[in-house]
């Protein structure tokens, strides 16, 4: 592999990794607070992407308005699902997991019925390519990855610099003590789910102009997110960020060196290795 090819592969991997992170972060955030692995998370990503198509392409809203609507709708959906389903099944992890599979199937089948079988496309908002010393990166991907990293920083701020974040961390640390100290656990759970859904919705929205869209697209996203949060450590924000970038690079360099199919198996193998050797993940706490 030439140095140029390696550099190009690295660039592709880092940008893709940054795009994976948003969806995975929401998943890990929800797991940290509610101990739910939300299988419906990929559908929120899909709905975010489809919403860009509906608001921006079909209804021709300005991009900012479309994104604001997505944030609002994702938050509302998160609150509704937390209140209607998750809260009633507290402490029953198997039922919770299967319920999230059920929600995922419902959203997916309704979307197929509503959007039809034809793939949807969102025309590129920022066409063009940046070339630096022979390494080419499309502007839209670079921009999406940049915004994603800004959102990651914002999440850090929420979790480590606000009262709500403090309550979240308290609950994650020791739910019973936190409750005794007057933390409203239900409210924190609702906020966490809403935040997680917003991140997933935006994650989908940002890739809308990059890929083509269909109601099945959530599956790939959720798979990738699972792998990332298992490797990074369930509940760990920093772990998720690092694992996201690492998986992006492993995928692109692996595909360059061995082919796409082999890279796919490599990613799964990495996840199994982590599960067996260090089940709490690279940065998770046991």
């Amino acid at each position: 592999m030439t140095p140029l090819l390696l550099a190009q592969g690295l660039a592709i991997g880092l940008v893709n990794g940054a795009l994976y992170i948003l969806t995975a972060l929401g998943l890990t955030l929800i797991y940290g607070i509610l101990h739910i692995v939300n299988f419906a998370h990929g559908e929120i990503y899909m709905l975010g992407a489809m919403a860009v198509y509906v608001f921006f392409v079909v209804l021709q809203w300005p991009l900012g308005a479309a994104l604001a609507a997505i944030v609002l709708l994702a938050a509302l959906l998160g609150l509704a699902i937390e209140r209607g389903v998750f809260r009633n099944l507290r402490g029953q992890w198997m039922q919770l997991l299967v319920a999230s599979v059920g929600i995922s199937l419902i959203i997916q089948s309704l979307s197929w019925i509503a959007f039809g079988a034809q793939e949807k496309n969102v025309p590129s908002v920022l066409p063009g390519v940046v070339a630096l010393a022979g390494v080419r990166v499309p502007i839209e991907r670079l921009a999406a990855a940049g915004v994603a990293l800004v959102l990651v920083a914002a999440l850090y701020w929420v979790v480590y610099r606000t009262r709500t974040g403090l309550a979240m961390r308290a609950i994650e640390e020791d739910e019973e003590t936190a409750r005794m100290l007057g933390v409203n656990a239900d409210r924190v759970a609702a906020v966490a789910v809403a935040l997680g859904f917003i991140l997933a919705g935006l994650g989908g929205a940002f890739v809308a102009p990059i890929y083509s869209l269909n109601p099945g697209m959530g599956l790939e996203a959720i798979l990738m997110s699972f792998i990332i949060i298992i490797i990074g450590g369930l509940g760990s924000i920093t772990g998720t960020v690092l694992a996201g970038l690492a998986i992006g690079v492993l995928q692109s360099i692996g595909a360059l060196a061995l082919g796409a199919e082999a890279a796919h198996v490599l990613v799964f193998a990495a996840m199994i290795a982590v599960l067996i050797l260090r089940p709490q993940g690279l940065l998770g706490r046991g």
């Binding site: 389903v85 299967v98 319920a99 599979v101 059920g102 929600i103 199937l105 419902i106 997916q108 089948s109 309704l110 019925i113």
Partner: peptide, 10 residues
Amino acid sequence: KTLVYAAILM
């Protein structure tokens, strides 16, 4: 069909 299954499940 998927919708019916999932609805029954929920």
